[in-house]
Design a binder for these strands. Structure first.
Lengths: 343, 343
DNA sequence: GGCCTACATGAAACCGATTTCAAAAATAAA
DNA sequence: TTTATTTTTGAAATCGGTTTCATGTAGGCC
């Protein structure tokens, strides 16, 4: 069955294609009578305009490319779904791709996005979140952004990207103040890699807070590591080597927290009575661990919404500020505050 | 900066657009000399052909729409990434969307995919995995598939979809034989909903295996429930009400297994010494639990590869069989086989 | 050299929408 | 009724590629 087009509708309705198009875009003035006739035919044939032709003719694909490091990471999955829902409301479609932490892939994906003439791109994780700069990438991005707006959660010095950030300072404040309020003074940081922007910012703020509260900073309480279970596990094993054990550990994300918790439990200590654990991300996992995990919630719906809004506004040449912040919230659970019912 | 087109290249090279196109598609015969000249210009301007124009002119968008129930579910995230990698190799792009378990969304997404004139659609979870039929949906799919091939992992009676299934029978066999070999005779099934095709097939096979081994089927050992942590937890709590406790429990997925494990541990029993636990999906989580979880691996890379191959073959009118099976493998870990090092 | 075949090439049509522009029709004003 | 104004409308151009078709050119063979 041949695809029907605007011309088929036009012929049968006895009008021109232009008129059908006007009905479709609902914008010019078309005589009621013809309008209804056309709409009836559209209905009858269940006609849907070809998005490629539309995109070609008005040079707007109404597609937003979303590039994340890896959707298998629940953080990115959450953000993606939030973006999808937000885009949908605005009549946009989202194209997802994973950079898988390879800068080479990121470059290729940008090219692919350009080929698809996406209206805008949202990039999270990978290069845009890495403090070590890559001149080549900056070059590519600059070329890219001369045609297509790029919204990042992160930072890319030397480029003109829109930035939508989760307020790293605030997220540290939430966690640290919570722990300090609980009386903790020996707070360790099972960090990620310090050349990742968001991680570095957290580290900086961690030190600042310690200073504010006149708590000594201990080098040995900061451990760099991977953003997964093993990273957390390894970090905690290192912390066990400290002569004075921390009373609380902050994990860089929920998976790392799980590793930390296992390590603690294997050493026969209790959470949170012996060591409290808290983390960032508040993915599904934090609700499922035992004890359930105190974690900083990044407000994925708000975050996704803002990313998409910014992308669309930029694509449609609307007014958007170049930098925006999303305020996280703390979700307190039993891994820091002991309730009845924990082992 | 205006986008450059094939015509700009043609003009500067002193050839026609047709020739540039031939160089681009690399298929007709073009004099070496001109070819190199054109390629040099393409290089110089970093020209990338407009995918919309290309798609419009040859009526092939080279985009595969992937609809899953929810990427936040690691199973779908794994499959999606596998599809993406496979598609990439073949020069295709993937469009992801989440149906979020709402049939209404699924219908809308199919329309969106059609508007985008995707080359093929891959659908996992949701309607295509549901035994309760929806005449309206079948109608829509039939209309859809008259234009665009639909590859499903599941089944949609009354439609002409391509099916790529994970061999449910085999996956049950792997788990059951493993447990029976270990000496288990009281094996419970913490099932999902039995109106989900894949779940129902597993249930059927479970009964069959019991018969084969002349083990009595006990109604009370089969508990229906949700596909998440709480579903598993609730199921296990029910199983604790049996007068004779099962010695092994099969969970419908890793999250459910986690719920089951927590329930068992809260009751003060040991895994696997008192009760063994095993599951389907073998997502990252199974490696991270304590004890680590025996799980059926669905061979995501093979699965994704086959889904995409089928989609592309169907789109390009190649030969593909309508039904294909992917053979799962068992990943044995400590939740069924006690090793040193478990609590 | 003459004839045939194979390759190279560009003009033009096409894919399916949107949009501009000018003409036609309807309405308002005189 | 006539003129001025506003709406409607369709023809045609456009977006940026691919492809067909006819023509031009080169090489192969007698």
């Amino acid at each position: 069955m041949k695809n029907i087009t605007i011309y088929d509708i036009a012929r049968e309705a006895g009008v021109s294609a232009a008129t059908v198009s006007r009905v479709l875009t609902n914008n010019a003035n078309v005589r009621q009578e013809k309008k209804q006739k056309v709409q009836a035919l559209i209905e009858k044939y269940n006609f849907k305009p070809n998005a490629l032709a539309k995109g070609l003719s008005d040079t707007k694909s109404r597609v937003i490319g979303v590039m994340v490091a890896d959707v298998r990471n629940p953080f990115y999955a959450e953000v993606f779904v939030a973006c999808e829902l937000a885009a949908e409301k605005a009549g946009y479609t989202v194209l997802l791709c994973n950079s898988l932490g390879e800068t080479e892939r990121e470059k290729e994906q940008l090219e692919l996005f350009y080929e698809q003439r996406v209206s805008a791109v949202i990039q999270l994780g990978g290069r845009v979140d890495d403090l070590t700069s890559d001149a080549d990438y900056v070059e590519i991005v600059n070329q890219f952004t001369s045609n297509i707006p790029l919204v990042v959660s992160g930072k890319l010095d030397g480029t003109l990207c829109y930035q939508v950030q989760i307020d790293a300072v605030k997220s540290v404040d939430l966690l640290m103040e919570h722990l300090i309020d609980l009386g903790h003074r020996r707070i360790a940081l099972a960090s990620g890699r310090l050349n990742v922007l968001s991680t570095y910012e957290k580290y900086q703020r961690y030190q600042q807070i310690l200073r504010n509260y006149r708590i000594d900073f201990r080098e040995e309480y900061v451990v760099e590591g991977k953003y997964n279970y093993y990273g957390g596990y390894a970090a905690m094993e290192k912390l066990f080597a400290c002569k004075e054990l921390p009373t609380a550990v902050i994990a860089i994300n929920d998976y790392a927290a799980l590793g930390i918790m296992h390590s603690i439990q294997e050493h026969g200590l209790r959470i949170p009575q012996d060591i409290a654990v808290a983390s960032y991300d508040n993915t599904q996992l934090s609700e499922l661990l035992s004890p359930r995990l105190t974690s900083v919630d990044y407000q994925y719906d708000v975050f996704g919404q803002k990313l998409v809004e910014t992308a669309i506004a930029a694509a449609e040449e609307g007014e958007v500020s170049r930098i925006q912040l999303v305020t996280p919230k703390l979700k307190v659970r039993e891994s820091t505050v002991s309730e009845a019912g924990n082992l």
